[in-house]
């Protein structure tokens, strides 16, 4: 990993953490539901710098955010980590298998979908262990994830294009 990559990952992680913290101030009707604003940064990192950078940014965010909030190694942390990693893995797979089919919005939707599915699976295996409540809540979470994934994808797309138009030199580092 080059020094430049480290700087990029550090700055992107800082942005992701700030959004993560800001998001916890937004009141939500149901405690476990989040908009996932930090995923804007994840998607932008994925598009600008590729799979590895996005994975690093997510790992750094999940670990540091959980240390800040005191939920390190707790249930919320396990769900965040599992969801975040699966979301990026899914985005990476889709982009490498079907390049060009999806833009940033589609990738964000796929990330959100697999994020939710992984969290539901983990919650079922580790905490709930009853299939009925998980099955009932699955379509609700997919719906919410689709809406937030769309918004995040659009914002990430705007961010990436805005960065590129602003004349900042961003080059895709070879993986």
């Amino acid at each position: 990993m080059q020094l430049q990559d480290k700087y990029r990952i550090a700055i992107l992680s800082a942005y992701a953490l700030a959004l993560h913290g800001f998001e916890s101030l937004i009141p939500m009707p149901i405690p476990w539901i989040r908009v996932g604003l930090a995923n804007i940064i994840t998607v932008a990192a994925f598009i600008l710098f590729g799979f590895r950078a996005a994975m690093m940014v997510t790992l750094v965010r999940v670990f540091i955010a959980s240390l800040f909030t005191g939920s390190f190694l707790g249930p919320g942390f396990i769900l965040s980590l599992g969801g975040g990693v699966s979301g990026i893995l899914a985005m990476g797979f889709v982009l490498s298998l079907l390049p060009g089919l999806f833009g940033p919005v589609g990738l964000s939707l796929i990330g959100a979908l697999f994020h939710n599915l992984a969290q539901l699976f983990l919650a079922y295996i580790l905490f709930i262990q009853k299939i009925e409540p998980v099955l009932i809540i699955t379509p609700v979470l997919i719906l919410i994830g689709t809406v937030t994934g769309l918004v995040n994808g659009l914002v990430a797309d705007l961010l990436v294009k805005g960065l590129k138009n602003s004349g900042v030199t961003i080059q895709n580092t070879p993986q």
Partner: peptide, 17 residues
């Protein structure tokens, strides 16, 4: 600027959910 794939995926996810 979204691709056709993006739109189809979005609508599919909405329908499925």
């Amino acid at each position: 600027g979204t691709t056709l794939g993006d739109r189809i995926l979005f609508i599919l996810l909405l329908i499925v959910s």
